[in-house]
Amino acid sequence: MNIRRIFCASATSVALAGAGAASAETMTIGITQNNVGVDSYQTTYEKAFIEAANANATVDAVVLDAGGDVARQIAQMEDLIQQEVDAIIIWPTNGEAVIPAVRKAHKAGIPVVVTNSNIAQAGFDFVASFSGPDNINQGARSAEIMCDKFKDMGIEKEAQVVHITGQPGYTTAIERAKGFEDRLPEVCPDVTVVDTQPGDWNREKSQKVMEAFLVKYDDIDGVYAGDDNMGVGALNAAKAAGREGIIFVGATNFAVGYEAMERGEYWGSIYQSPVDDAKAALQTAVDVLQGKDVPFLNYFDTPKITQDNMGDFSKPVF
């Protein structure tokens, strides 16, 4: 097994790695990731992907990172196509913008597996399978967690919520927001979402967003953040401002979210493993290349986690 980990985006840097078509004994699988350095989930995902590829003697892997740059990711897709890899895994930086590159791979006869965050529906015909979480379902489950807590507190008829979303244009952010916003009025029709702003998956930016919310609104009962990294940023802002009694609910239970739940400061989240995510993506690509029957939407389960049941879950490693 051979791992070629490429940090740069240029065609030259990839070509210098010496990649070529897979031999008869091996399959060459390229992956272009979203932004490894932006949070611990993506860092852990990459490590787990490399470990899974190392453990599979039939896989040669080319591991790329787009650094959050759509143009760089498109260039990486083109490089992988030119190398004639056997399959490409893409963690899209933008679900719309990458469609032409995915279509180009499809036309070249290279199956594409989308991981973690799906591309826009217009590109589905060019994708062999999506491997990852059901993000709409995650958003809906977060809404249920929040509503149940409001009912326990007796404020479900009057509660006001602010919503911090992920990166604009990013499918996961769009889907989690949709799941939350569609489900909350179904389970708690009198709860009001008073404001929504992006936190871009960034804790520091989300803290600033929450600081602005706290100035603008005297009454905030709940915060929904598209992941725990942003949710803890919002929590930090509330603590600094001395605003107590706010219910924080996130998704993708980070270690910092788990620790805040242990302290009783953060109510709930959705449990999701980057290790499972990475392993599932690689296995899906292998299964596709081996001609196995793979579902188009290959979801893994992501259960609810709150202060009440967190003892049933291990602390996240990311």
Rank of each mutant, 00 (worst) to 15 (best):
K151W: 07
F300Q: 07
A255Y: 08
D86R: 00
K47Q: 13
V209S: 00
V14L: 15
S129F: 01
A140S: 13
I81M: 10
A97L: 11
S273P: 02
Y299K: 04
K239C: 01
T192M: 03
Y224E: 04
G67S: 08
D277V: 04
H106E: 12
A177R: 14
P100N: 11
L184T: 03
V62Q: 02
Q272C: 07
M77T: 06
E144T: 10
Q83T: 03
D277P: 05
D182F: 00
V112E: 09
D200M: 14
E25D: 15
N135D: 15
S314V: 08
R4N: 07
Y170H: 12
A285W: 12
R4Q: 12
G132S: 09
L184P: 01
A177T: 10
D200G: 08
M210T: 01
R203Q: 13
Y45T: 06
D276E: 15
A143W: 10
A24L: 14
A108G: 08
A285S: 12
A57K: 09
T28C: 12
D86L: 05
F254P: 01
C8V: 05
G18Y: 09
G222A: 09
V113Y: 04
G257P: 02
S131R: 14
I81W: 03
N94S: 11
G37C: 06
Y217G: 00
S142K: 02
P274W: 08
